[in-house]
Nucleic acid binder design. Structure first.
Lengths: 243, 243
DNA sequence: CGTATTATTGACCACTCTCAAAAAACGTGG
DNA sequence: CCACGTTTTTTGAGAGTGGTCAATAATACG
């Protein structure tokens, strides 16, 4: 049975979510939990679907839900008063988001594609966390991972050239796909050039020019706007770290 | 009694740490915990002292301890193979660090000044976390805060000008000092210009030039290399967000 | 006090940004 | 399904912020 069929079936049951049949159970928040714990989680989980380019919540909103991406892609970003934007992360199936600071979200969340999300209401989740330490353990481990990724991205933003930034970005997407059981090479780019620019601290023009440059060198191929073929992943790796 | 006297007394008792008399108990990891919990924490805590410019651990080392800064300042950084460096955070009394990913530290930690640290061995701490959920709660909350700060810094690195970066940096140091009960204005800079540059994604020359520029405008004063007076904090705030 | 290190200042350069136009992709309605 | 208009991306020319290289000044330290 293809994963799509499972998802569609679950879609029929918004009240009761069958985490045990979830397509992302192996990589997500619930990965590594005991069957009993997963059952408890599914008791408070709800599923939501959103169209592409929709705002899930804004920086400063009351943090009422924790989300896990089941299908589709999401971007998280912060804004300056004059509109300059920094996309802090792109999220894919298995990734979670929505932890607030002082009860408020610290960033805005927007869908890149139509998405299906698993959603946990904060009050219920907190009750669960208080009861079962394994949940909090997991949440802490995942947050530490996010923090490490954020630090890695600071290194990119503060110290890498445009060329190195783009190479790093493509490799990250490729590794992420592989981790989710997808092919590492035709990398899917569900985000716009503008999104990529705002993630890497560049302008769309520089992103475009650098793509073209890497293509001319034969390192990557660009069959269409939203796909990149990594012809020479080794070369990319060398470029990514300033080789 | 000045805080220094308290610290010196505690220094005499390395085996048993009296958290209840700790100078940073109001802002640190242990803040907000019950007296009983603090007592349990002090049972596994040890204190260490280190000279300035000393490496506490390196990226990739086994993560054997969790640290809280009691006195002094620490920097955390990541390196590229060619030596380019990104300082992800400066830490001051009350801040904690040392959470690893997959058992290894994700960054290098180095002292800026002579420091006194509170140190928790990972195995013992893990046992405590398993028993008392309040600890894990606190640790999660603090890690989420760190993540939010990291995201704020990504916005700085990716989207702010040199002038905005430096203004933001000075305001952060000032707010941090105020939070720790110190005067917000003569801001102490325990780090070198090179450290500031590697934190803000700039070169030392640009940091120096921008300091001079702000000084000429009368926004700040620089009595000596390691102190900055915020003459016009409002102006700084305007500059910081691109006013 | 002299030496080594760090910070500042200056001149010049280049990577990336800005502004602008052409090309490609997308969406919509006929 | 195609034609049209809109949006996004690419490409080009020129400019500017911040970087590089180098010399001077200030500071720290023995």
């Amino acid at each position: 049975m293809p994963p799509e069929a499972v998802l569609e079936r679950e879609q029929q049951a918004p009240a009761y979510v069958q985490c045990s049949r979830c397509a992302v159970s192996s990589v997500a928040f619930c990965a590594g939990l005991t069957a009993a714990d997963v059952a408890r989680l599914s008791g408070i989980a709800g599923q939501v679907q959103m169209p592409a380019h929709d705002t899930l919540f804004r920086e400063g909103d009351a943090a009422e839900h924790l989300y896990t991406v089941i299908h589709g892609a999401v971007k998280l970003y912060k804004l300056l008063p004059d509109g300059r934007r920094q996309i802090t992360a792109f999220l894919f199936p298995g990734d979670f988001f929505g932890l607030g600071v002082g009860g408020a979200y610290a960033y805005t969340a927007e869908t890149l594609t139509p998405v299906r999300l698993c959603r946990f209401p904060r009050p219920k989740l907190d009750r669960l966390l208080a009861e079962a330490p394994s949940f909090e353990n997991k949440l802490l481990a995942l947050t530490i991972q996010d923090l490490a990724q954020a630090q890695e991205h600071m290194l990119l933003l503060g110290r890498k050239t445009a060329r190195e930034k783009l190479a790093t970005f493509l490799l990250r997407l490729s590794r992420g796909a592989r981790r989710r059981g997808l092919a590492p090479s035709p990398v899917a780019l569900p985000m716009s050039r503008s999104d990529i620019a705002d993630h890497l601290g560049l302008t769309i023009e520089t992103v475009s020019r650098t793509f073209t440059q890497l293509k001319r060198e034969g390192v990557i191929g660009i069959p269409d706007l939203s796909h990149v073929i990594l012809h020479q992943p080794e070369a990319l790796r060398t470029i990514a770290d300033g080789g």
